[in-house]
Amino acid sequence: MCLSIPGKILSIKDQMATIDISGSQYQAGTHLVENAKVGDLVLIHSGFIIQMLTPEEAEETREILREILKNDETSKK
């Protein structure tokens, strides 16, 4: 469902990836994405990987958020 948390690809065989989600494994098709490989962070929906994520992107979002909050601090002053 949409509240999906990212999973990590453990292995790929015949276009099907085994994905770790907090210690449980889930099977998802790699048909909808390019170059999925072991170790990638992915979003899953209805049995398929729908998007690749990178840890850097997650880090970046956190930084952006910090920036937003900081901007506000400065604008208040």
């Binding site: 909808l32 994405v33 979003l43 990178t54 992107e57 970046e60």
Partner: peptide
């Protein structure tokens, strides 16, 4: 939602 969304999206999925 930058970690999952881009301007152009998932091209391969769109093509399919």
């Amino acid at each position: 939602y930058k970690r999952a969304v881009t301007i152009n999206g998932n091209k391969k999925a769109q093509q399919i």
